[in-house]
Computed example of a mutant assay.
Amino acid sequence: MPKTAVVALGGNVLTLEGQSGTYVEQELNALHMAETVCSLRDAGWNVVLVHGNGPQVGNLAIQQEQGEPLVPQQPLFCLGSMTQGQIGSILTLALRRVGGSRIPDVASLVTHVVVEADDPAMDRPTKPIGPFFDADQATLLANQRGWSVAEDAGRGYRRVVPSPEPTRIVEAGVIKTLVDSGVIVVAAGGGGVPVVRQDKGYTGVDAVIDKDYAAQQLATALKADALVLVTGVERVLLDFGTPQQRPVREMTAEEAERHLGDGQFPEGSMGPKVRAALRFIRNGGEAAVITTPRLVQASLDAEAKADADVGTRIVTSRTQVGATR
């Protein structure tokens, strides 16, 4: 029976640093990610693809604001659903173009993710969205539009919005049915549309869920074998920015927990990815991988040699000889 991998890629994988986010740019970037997914399928994996939407939803929010009063502005959670459709379409077309007859079917599913209305994060905006601004631009926009802004990893200032914890994937059962049928599924895009439970169904809330946490929730619900967190660096680094900086090929959940507690993985960069990986492992997952698209397939190979070119694997127990501790 094929194994299942939930693969999470950031919105910045589709809009690279220095790009403005045109459709053509995103389309070309999606083709590179499609190569990775198709190689996983060729290796016998079922794949669920989760994507971020930080650049895209922020850009769309600006368009919404600029469009008033000609057209009514839509709430942030609604923009999340719009970008799910937008990016889902780009990824689906890329997969079909790259995979051809190797890909039996692809489905992009607008996904709703339950959060708690009283989550403290609703009152503490931390999730960056949209383009980067310098300090003066950010201050001006914050005053003009009532934004919360914050510096993002030394690259400039961005708008920040609430990012509550996901507690359940509403469409998890439907996604499992599709995966079990051999369909490549694009789901929980942008972390999913955040909703809260009411007496009669659900209602949307203005927030953006971290896509790595949503991917973990989905991977756990599907009882997936692997969680893959795609990022811009090949391996997690310990003592980043110091003369002792070194990459990690493999670490146990216990080691990752200790490094996280020691402050090795800041919240603004690698922290959410390592935390999502730990949650997956603690909830029964076999392995979590953090790496670039190029190394995804090799990193999922449990039989990879100690000197193989792989990303960072977080596992329940030590499996590779000579891995960096």
Results as ranks from 00 to 15, higher is better:
Gln216Thr: 15
Asp210Met: 04
Gly10Ile: 09
Ala138Lys: 06
Ala224Thr: 07
Leu222Asn: 04
Arg313Trp: 12
Gly146Leu: 07
Val161Ala: 11
Gly21Ile: 11
Gly156Lys: 11
Val321Arg: 15
Gln84Glu: 11
Gly130Ala: 09
Ile129Met: 04
Thr126Ile: 14
Ile281Ala: 09
Ala214Pro: 11
Tyr157Pro: 00
Arg197Phe: 00
Met33His: 13
Ile314His: 02
Thr291His: 13
Gly284Met: 09
Ala323Ile: 11
Met122Val: 07
Val6Arg: 09
Gln63Leu: 12
Gly201His: 09
Leu109Asn: 02
Asp301Phe: 09
Val149Met: 13
Pro2Val: 03
Ala30Ile: 11
Asp118Ile: 07
Ser89Gly: 08
Gln19Leu: 03
Gly189Lys: 04
Ala253Cys: 10
Leu95His: 04
Ala94His: 08
Val115Pro: 05
Gly271Ile: 10
Ser101Ile: 12
Glu151Ile: 00
Leu9Ser: 04
Asp123Ala: 15
Arg124Trp: 03
Leu60Asp: 01
Asn53Pro: 07
Val179Met: 01
Ala302Glu: 15
Gln198Leu: 02
Leu93Met: 14
Gly44Val: 07
His112Arg: 15
Pro293Ile: 07
Met122Glu: 03
Gly85Phe: 12
Val315Trp: 02
Pro55Ile: 12
Arg258Ile: 08
Leu260Gln: 13
Leu238Asp: 00
Lys273Gly: 08
Gly322Tyr: 06
Gly268Val: 11
Asp212Tyr: 14
Leu60Pro: 01
Leu222Thr: 02
Gly263Met: 08
Met251Ser: 06
Trp147Pro: 01
Leu60Cys: 02
Val13Phe: 03
Pro104His: 13
Thr292Lys: 13
Gly201Met: 09
Leu93Asp: 13
Pro75Met: 05
Ser39Asn: 15
Gly11His: 10
Glu257Ser: 15
Leu178Gly: 03
Gly173Glu: 14
Val179Ser: 00
Phe133Gln: 07
Leu222Lys: 03
Pro104Asn: 11
Pro164Asn: 12
Gly156Phe: 10
Ala30Asn: 05
Ala142Tyr: 06
Gly67Glu: 09
Ala187Met: 01
Pro120Gln: 06
Asp309Cys: 08
Gly10Phe: 04
Gln63Asp: 12
Arg124Phe: 06
Arg313Phe: 12
Ala256Asn: 05
Lys211Tyr: 08
Val186Arg: 00
Pro72Gln: 12
Ala276Pro: 10
Leu178Cys: 00
Arg282Glu: 15
Gln86Cys: 00
Ser163Val: 09
Val160Thr: 10
Ile209Ala: 10
Gln73His: 13
Ala107Gln: 14
Ala308His: 10
Leu40Phe: 02
Val37Ala: 05
Asp134Thr: 08
Arg124Ala: 14
Gln245Ser: 13
Leu141Met: 14
Leu237Thr: 05
Val114Leu: 14
Val296Asp: 11
Thr167Ile: 15
Gly261Leu: 13
Ile62Phe: 12
Thr83Asn: 02
Leu227Trp: 09
Cys38Trp: 04
Leu222His: 06
Ala153Asp: 14
Thr231Tyr: 01
Cys38Ile: 15
Arg318Thr: 15
Thr324Leu: 14
Asn12Glu: 11
Lys127Leu: 08
Pro131Ala: 06
Ser299Asn: 05
Glu255Val: 13
Asp307Phe: 02
Tyr23Ala: 11
Glu116Ser: 14
Val161Met: 12
Gln26Asp: 02
Ala138Leu: 06
Gln137Cys: 08
